[in-house]
């Protein structure tokens, strides 16, 4: 059982950041879904809900999603349902249920960088950045590999680069974690393939992505699929073996590419 000595809703990001770094047991509260399952004794829980960070804002060059935006907002956002063939919205639709997604926040999901994250996989295939209070704007691909620092994720930024995109996952039951998640995008002639739930954190298959021309042939696709399984590491857990995940990766990548080219 987790415990919390103090709960506070700061009125500015500066204040929140200061509080966060005052004590090593101070923590930013996201949707609480994960935090409350742990056994940690926290000193102070910092709730950012008074800072107006729960919005999805579309501007000419980009879409900005505040850290306190819920997964349900993402799911129902007309912008995110339209841009990038709707993959950002699609990626969260199978996560447990509506009341769960009404609690879970984008900041919590992205900051935590969980291996099974559907959202992280989808975002990774796009031109996406995180805006950290101290660390500034960091490409998501880099952020995923960074250590967990005591910083505040303010928002994520997705560049509207006109990418076509596709999101695919396989699950044991409809609302379970994915056995494997794959997101792809094509911007002009450049492809990105992101594979999540391997079961490690989502990662880009850079070599495989490069093997795909704008309109790939069957052979191009097949060789990209093979490369995905050789360049990324796949592991075994309750939901599937590394071998099975590799097979799924090939199939889902192939289907994603075909969908985008259709």
């Amino acid at each position: 059982m987790f415990s919390l000595k103090e709960y506070i809703t700061p009125s500015s990001l500066e204040e929140a950041y200061e509080l966060l770094n005052k004590n090593k047991n101070n923590v930013i509260l996201g949707g609480l879904l994960w935090l409350k399952m742990g056994n940690k004794n926290y000193n102070m829980g910092i709730d950012l809900s008074k800072l107006g960070l729960d919005t999805i804002i579309e501007t000419e060059p980009q879409i900005e999603v505040g850290c306190m935006t819920t997964l349900r907002q993402i799911e129902t956002s007309s912008v995110l349902n339209t841009c990038f063939d709707g993959i950002v919205s699609a990626s969260v639709k199978n996560i447990v249920g509506v009341q769960f997604r009404n609690c879970a926040t984008v900041g919590g999901s992205v900051y935590s960088r969980f291996g099974f994250s559907d959202l992280l996989t989808a975002l990774l295939a796009l031109d996406c950045y995180v805006h950290m209070h101290k660390g500034g704007i960091i490409p998501l691909e880099k952020f995923i590999k960074m250590p967990y620092e005591k910083d505040i994720l303010i928002k994520i930024i997705i560049k509207k680069d006109g990418s076509r995109a596709s999101y695919k996952s396989c699950r044991m039951t409809a609302t379970d974690f994915p056995i494997l998640a794959v997101a792809l995008s094509r911007c002009n002639s450049s492809w990105k393939i992101a594979v999540g739930a391997r079961p490690n954190k989502a990662a880009l298959a850079a070599k495989a992505s490069k093997l795909l021309p704008e309109n790939p042939t069957k052979e191009d696709i097949a060789s990209a699929c093979e490369t995905v399984t050789s360049e990324l590491h796949f592991g075994t857990n309750l939901r599937g073996s590394a071998e099975y995940r590799k097979e799924l990766a090939k199939v889902l990548v192939k289907r994603g590419v075909e969908e985008i080219c259709r």
């Binding site: 249920g97 044991m172 039951t173 409809a174 609302t175 379970d176 309750l238």
Partner: peptide, 16 residues
Amino acid sequence: MKNNSFMQYKIPSRRD
């Protein structure tokens, strides 16, 4: 026991 919760031991939802 590896799957001692509804997170790891899946019972069917209404979509299954």
